[in-house]
């Protein structure tokens, strides 16, 4: 479990202890949005400090050189001036990684595509659409 445990909800913290999950502390508050989980041992991030921490735990990390242009919606359903995060802009669904938008818009060098495909996962993205951070998805 990766989180800033200073801010973890007490019931969740209790559950983590009960389930005996390994805790990986980071200083970033929005852990899920900041980390695109590819599988149990690999992730894509845009924050060098998070990358450094994950690597200490033997997680294979692709750390993006530049902050990707990921959009967020504001209250008027227009793009906000704030920037979205990589972890909220893609999600693992079965054996696929879905990118919420056109991957080429944030991956001109193809590093993200290569990293994902090296793990044998299928990429699903949406040609022409800007990449948006939705806070990921949760499969029930």
């Amino acid at each position: 479990m990766i989180h800033n445990f200073q801010y973890t909800e007490p019931q969740i913290l209790e559950w983590i202890e009960k389930e005996n999950l390994q805790k990986i502390p980071i200083s970033q508050g929005y852990a899920n949005c900041s980390i695109a989980v590819i599988n149990e041992n690999s992730a894509i991030v845009a924050d060098a400090k998070i990358a450094e921490t994950l690597r200490k735990y033997k997680i294979d990390v692709l750390c993006l050189d530049d902050l990707p242009d990921i959009k967020l919606w504001n209250n008027q359903n227009e793009y906000s001036k704030m920037r979205g995060f990589i972890g909220g802009a893609m999600a693992r669904i079965e054996d696929k990684i879905m990118v919420f938008g056109d991957l080429r818009k944030i991956d001109k060098q193809g590093k993200i595509r290569d990293f994902i495909q090296n793990y044998g996962l299928e990429l699903v993205d949406f040609e022409g659409l800007d990449v948006v951070d939705y806070g990921g998805i949760v499969v029930i």
Binding site: N32, N75, Y134, G135, I137
Partner: peptide, 10 residues
Amino acid sequence: YAEISSHVDI
């Protein structure tokens, strides 16, 4: 705030 007001992971 608006930008994360319907984000699943929030």
